[in-house]
Computed example of a mutant assay.
Amino acid sequence: MSQREKKLKLGIPKGSLQDSTIKLFAKSGWKINLHHRNYFPEINDPDIECSLCRAQEMPVYVQDGTLDVGLTGKDWILENEAEVVTVDELVYSKMSNRPARWVLAVGGDSPYRRPEDLAGKKIATELENFTRRYFQQADIPVEVEFSWGATEAKVVSGLADAIVEVTETGTTIRAHGLRIIAELLTTSTQLIANTRAWEDPWKQDKITQMRTLLQGALRAESLVGLKMNVHQDRLDQLMQILPSLTSPTVSNLYQADWLSIEIVVQESTVRDLIPDLQSIGVEGIIEYPLYKVI
């Protein structure tokens, strides 16, 4: 097969991560267009073919070569005990840029305080295999039952004594009157590759390019660029208050005693930084978004 005929088979996670994944790829330079009731989206790269796939099944399809590369959770890799190449961790989700946690939760008024207290009890979860291994390794005999959904309600309705469920903030867990007694696993989105695809130089180069641009887009999400003008007499004062990712770029303005300054800063610092800049006479402050930081 010639280089031009090669295709990288990319799996996009269907479900809760779908929109945030497509948005991340768009920031990275790949526009993915979905079609109603079609599991094969279009992408603006002739070297890539896309498929929608549930994150829970992604490791299986990457392992068997149906897909060359895909995005899924670390939890589903462990659940399926999949033999894949973990290319990189991409910390993003549908809600926030933080890893999610699989927690063990019980009723708020239950007597259970630790995993050991659940010996002989029933636990409902979608992460069935991992949960079973967790309790086996801890030598705690429990009955693990697969949950097809609405897992938080299983304890309230008396269908289970405890649940293992994924959460980012714990809000939904608490809203159902449950109490977290243990954290079993911290997970985040992983870029994974088929082992044979990773050994192919052309595919590895393409996957590495993908990793670089996805990570660049993620880094840029919390950063902004700032441009400003300052009189050269105030430069030392300015440097004392400027937080920056790297040293600021300083250039002379044409036929003037003023300097142009350009920096990259955390977006969260800008609201407090601008008044400080104005207090020392900085003018022409411009804030602009960043799409990638490599």
Rank of each mutant, 00 (worst) to 15 (best):
S2Y: 12
Q3C: 05
K6M: 15
L10D: 02
K14H: 14
D19T: 15
D19S: 15
D19G: 12
L24P: 07
L24D: 02
A26L: 10
A26P: 04
K27P: 02
K31N: 14
L34H: 06
L34Y: 06
R37W: 14
R37P: 09
N38P: 06
N38G: 08
F40R: 10
P41W: 03
E42I: 06
I43P: 04
I43K: 02
P46K: 13
D47W: 10
I48Y: 04
M58I: 05
P59N: 04
P59Q: 04
D64Y: 04
L71P: 09
L71G: 08
T72N: 04
L78T: 00
E83F: 10
V84C: 00
V85E: 14
V87H: 00
D88R: 00
E89K: 00
V91M: 02
S93Q: 03
K94L: 11
M95D: 14
S96N: 11
N97L: 11
N97G: 13
A100S: 12
V103W: 05
V106Q: 03
G108I: 08
G108H: 10
D109A: 14
D109S: 14
S110V: 02
S110K: 01
Y112H: 06
T125N: 03
E126W: 09
T131K: 01
R133K: 11
Y134P: 05
I140F: 09
I140Y: 06
E143S: 10
V144K: 01
E145K: 15
E145Q: 13
V155F: 04
I163Y: 03
V164C: 11
T169S: 15
G170L: 12
I173E: 07
R174P: 08
H176W: 14
L178P: 04
I180S: 07
I181A: 06
L185Q: 07
I192K: 00
T195N: 10
W198G: 02
W198A: 12
W202S: 13
Q204L: 05
K206E: 13
T212R: 04
L214K: 00
Q215L: 00
R219F: 03
V224F: 08
L226V: 15
L226K: 02
N229G: 11
H231Y: 12
P243I: 10
T246C: 07
S247M: 10
Y254F: 13
Q255E: 13
Q255N: 14
D257T: 12
L259V: 04
S260W: 08
I261K: 01
I263K: 01
I263G: 01
S268A: 14
V270D: 03
D272W: 13
L273E: 01
I274V: 15
L277S: 02
S279M: 02
S279G: 01
V282N: 00
I285S: 04
Y288V: 05
Y288L: 04
K292F: 02
